[in-house]
Structures are given as structure tokens and as C-alpha cells.
Amino acid sequence: MEDEDSIGRRIAFYRKQRGLTQIALAQKASVSVSLLRKIEQGARDATPVLVAAVAKPLGVDVTVLNGQPYDREGPGRDRIHELIPAVRAMLNYWDLPPDLETPTRPADQLIIEAVAIAHLRQADRNVEALSRIPAVLLEITAALYATDVPSEQETLHDAAATVLHPALSILHATGYDDLATITAARITWVGDRWGSPLVAALAVHTRTSSMLRYGTYDVGLRLTERARADLATEGTDADALRMTGSLHLRSAILAARAGDADLAAQHITEARAITDRLPQDTDHLWRNLAFGPTNTGFHDVATAIELGDGPRALTLAEGLDVPATFARTRTAHHFMDLARAYLWQGRYDASLACLQRSRELAPQQTRHHPTTREVTRMLVRAHRHTNEPLARFTAWMTVN
């Protein structure tokens, strides 16, 4: 992977196109000139915080600077892109029923189908999941408008949320932020129709995914605070507590990206207090938030990395005992984070090993993530001599 394909090169291109000097862009983005210069030269990896900071004054989407969506053309075209037109068509149906050629299945069968799709996403089988989502969600939507039986409506709302959340996760991961934003709005619609505080909280959690990417951390923090206050009326219900904990973890990352270490630590502490009451790791299917001690530990490491504290992140990671049965996609993301921390410490072999571990766990997610590409590019730059494992990994990144 060459520097010509780096985020830094894209930043430099749009900066010059806008007629901005490095000093002017650094001032507008509130970053140091030396850091911006190193990133444009390819001597430093571009973090999500930096990319979000410069995207706004450049008037460019974050996905454009990241180069996403990846692999849309040529012999290495990713299969995921063939599925996007059907997703766009599906998202047009929400406030009116679609016309289907065949009758809809019963609600209890549709929820089974929805859960199966959620499991596919958790297993990193994104292409298979996204290929099934449009038809199933259209059927669920049609069924919702065809019944006035409260129990069936509740099951169908549950099924809709179960399908929409993995759809949003896959769309974000592959760089289709416009569709992910629409999908988040659909989750809000489901919550409003259902009247479920948990789905309302899930909608907030999904909305803040875009806020993390685009740097509106203060708005995200206010939204998550309000959502936690709304959930407090649910008392000590286990699902409400787990959702509250997940919102604390999201707030920790928002605070870390905003540079507020104390607030990030406070939210991690609040999440740990909930894990003391609910010590079992859980995968929530439609919530897909994998809350518990393990994910709280992952977020503790991630906040240190977001704050630029590589040594602390690696120390925290050493104390983690990750169950083999834990969600593969979340564990893979943890190893992607660690790859960046090891890179900063000059431990290049360990950094590559983390990327390789992430690939083993969740190859589709790993290949689509900007962190993988930035860290891999930096590792190629750091190795002056041939490194066969790195060469193989780079080849995997660039060819399907």
C-alpha cells in the first residue's frame, strides 16, 4: 500500500484545491501544523479524530478522505457493492406498505429470520447478511401494516429493529454513510411506533455513530445523557441496565475523541458499576452491543488509544481475558485498535500480528476499516527490507 493512496495525500489534495496553506488548515481544524505536515507526508497515520477535524474546514465528507467505499471498481471489486441498490430501494418503504407479490409470513417466522441475519453480522458474514436484509425488511414492513394484533405488532417491531441494526452496522463499515443515516432514522421510526424505551435508546446509540465519525462529539454526549435519563425510569430491569451501560461506553469514546480524559474515565467507571451488577457478557441480537465486562475492557483500551496514550492502552490490554466465545466482530475491532497502539510504540511485528488476528476473526470487517489501511501503509513504510508476512497481508488488502 503506497503513500499515494493515503488519507494524508487526500487531505493535501483537497487543502490545495481549497487554496489553504497547512498553517491555515491546522488553525481551522484546531490541530498542530507539525502533525498535519507529517500526516500529509505519510509519516504519521491519520486518526479518526484528525480526519473528522480537517474534513469540516475542507468541506469534504470523512468517507472521501478515507477513500471509502473501497474496491468498487476493477477485478478486485467487492461483492458488497452489488447489494447496495436493493438496500437503497428498501429504505424507501417505511411510512407506507410495499406491494409484495406473495403473502407475508407469520410474525413468529419473521423474527426467526431477523435473528438469523443478526447472527450473520456478528459472525462477520456481511455479504450474506446484506443480501438477505432488503427482502426480509420489506416483508416485515408489509406485515406491520397488515395487522392490528398488538402481540404481532410487538414481534414485528422487534424483527424490524433486529434487521435494521446490522444493516446500519454494515453500511457504516463499508462507507455508505448516507444510507447508514437513513437506516438510523428508520430505527427511530420503529421505536416511535413501538413505544419501546430500549429501541429509543438504541436509536440514539446508532445516531452517535455518525457523530463519532464527523466530530460532533458534544451533540453525541448530550444525546446519550438524555437517553440514559429516559432509561432510568425503567428501574433495575436488566435490559435497561445493559443498554444504559452501552450508552456509557459510547459516551466514553465520544469524550475521549473530544479530548476529555476525565469524562471518558467517568463513563468507563459507570459502565463497570453496571457490570458488577450484571457480570455476564451478553450479545443483544438486535441491540448488537455486546455489553459486559469484556466489552467494557475493550472500551477502556479504546479510550486510551483515542486519547493518544499508546502505553496505557497496551498495559490495559495485557490485563484483559477475552472469552473465545465473545462476539468476533467486536474482538476483531479491539485488535485493530491495538495494532495502532503497537505502531505508535514502534513495535511493528506486534502491530502486524494484531491486524492478522483481526483478519482471522472478522476478515470482511477488517478489510473495510480505514484503520487497517492506515496502519498497514505505515508498516510498509517502516520496513525498508522485504517482510514476507506483511507483503502477504498487503496483497490480501488490495485484491479480493
Rank of each mutant, 00 (worst) to 15 (best):
N126T: 06
R88K: 14
S151K: 15
D262K: 13
G310D: 11
D276K: 14
T376R: 00
D192P: 02
L379H: 03
Q365T: 14
F13Y: 10
V64I: 08
T183H: 03
A160L: 09
Y145Q: 00
L91T: 08
V51C: 07
L96I: 01
S34E: 10
P69I: 07
T104W: 03
G297Q: 06
T331M: 04
E82Q: 14
L138M: 13
L249S: 03
H368L: 04
R359I: 02
R105E: 10
L100S: 00
G195I: 13
A114W: 01
R277H: 15
V380T: 03
T366D: 04
P311S: 05
S34H: 09
R10D: 03
G310F: 02
L110C: 01
V204S: 06
R381G: 08
D239T: 11
L231N: 05
D262H: 11
Y93A: 09
T181H: 13
H299A: 09
T386E: 13
T208S: 00
L100M: 08
N387F: 04
R121V: 15
E101V: 04
E270K: 03
S196H: 08
R213E: 09
Q356C: 07
I253D: 02
D300H: 00
L50H: 08
P197V: 02
K28N: 13
Q22V: 10
R340C: 11
R193W: 02
L50G: 11
Y348C: 14
T183W: 00
S34I: 11
P69H: 02
W396E: 07
H157E: 06
A135V: 14
A26D: 08
A240F: 07
D177T: 15
